[in-house]
Structures are given as C-alpha cells and as structure tokens.
C-alpha cells in the first residue's frame, strides 16, 4: 500500500434517522460544534429503513466507513425500528468478518435529538477510527484479468 494514512481522507456515509440522529446533527450545527468533513449525511425516516444491502452498496461504492445513527432503545419514533437495525448490524458485522472486512467499518450509534455533543464526538472519533483502519479494501479490489 503506497498511500500513507496521513494523506488518507476517509470517505464515510452516515445514515441518520430523521427524529433522533439527524436532529442531533442539526443541534450540533446550531451549537457550532465542529467535526471532520469526511462524513456525508443521509436522512432516512427511521434507522429501521437502513438495510444491509444499502450498507454494502456504500462499501462497494468506496465508503471506508458507514455510520448508522438511530434513536436510543425505547425512544424510536416508530416504536421499534431501531431494534431491527441493531440486529441487522450485528449479523452484518459477523458477515463482514467472514469475508475479511474489518467489521468496524460499519458502526451503529444511538444519538438522540438532544445529543449534539455526542453527535460531534461520534463523528470525530469515527473519522479517526476509519483513518486508522485505512482505505477500504473493497475500493482497492483488482478486477480479475479476463477478457
């Protein structure tokens, strides 16, 4: 690998549920809490909408990390979507392990609408973690020589 990690700028997609994490990100903004610009946020109604295929698609398209932000247990606007996402993430992480991808490239965090500071610290620490992990092996995949 010729790229050093210092020059490496992680690309991260964050799926944020509209009622908690997206609002938490709004609060971080209103409070002017700064964090790295590596994360492109995407709003979904519920973390329950985030399915495995979307997370894998992000990895396929070159995401070095995928963050999912949902409501704390018991706080889901849609009652229980976050529990389903949690279970999916548990299995997905195991699947990633099986295929030799560091499962930390997918991360689920509960961030409420009032946790602007937690949003900031999560974005900061996750960007740093991904910086340490380095570029995703998926992006560096070489196509087999054929044709």
């Amino acid at each position: 690998m010729d790229k050093t990690n210092a020059a490496f700028e992680p690309r991260i997609v964050a799926f944020l549920c509209r009622w908690c994490s997206y609002a938490g990100a709004d609060l971080a903004g209103v409070s002017r809490l700064t964090y790295p610009a590596n994360i492109v946020p995407m709003r979904v109604n519920c973390s329950g909408r985030v399915d495995t295929e979307m997370v894998l698609t992000a990895l396929e398209k070159g995401a070095d990390g995928v963050l999912i932000g949902g409501c704390h247990p018991g706080d889901c606007h849609y009652v229980s979507g976050n529990y389903k996402t949690r279970r999916r993430v548990v299995l997905l992480k195991q699947a990633l392990s099986e295929v030799g991808i560091d499962p930390r490239r997918v991360h689920l965090e509960w961030i409420s609408a009032s946790e602007g500071i937690k949003f900031q610290s999560t974005m900061t620490s996750y960007t740093e973690l991904i910086r340490e992990l380095g570029p995703t092996p998926v992006r560096q995949r070489k196509e087999p020589v054929h044709g």
């Binding site: 295929e53 894998l56 990895l59 991808i101 560091d102 499962p103 992990l133 092996p137 998926v138």
Partner: peptide
C-alpha cells in the same frame, strides 16, 4: 456475484 464478491484480508477482520 454478491456485493463483496470475494474474501478480503483486513488485519482486524475479527475486531468488534
């Protein structure tokens, strides 16, 4: 033909 297609070799693939 899955999205990951093959096996990778990240050092900490078993990390949590």
């Amino acid at each position: 033909t899955s999205i990951f297609k093959e096996r990778y070799h990240e050092r900490n693939a078993t990390a949590r």
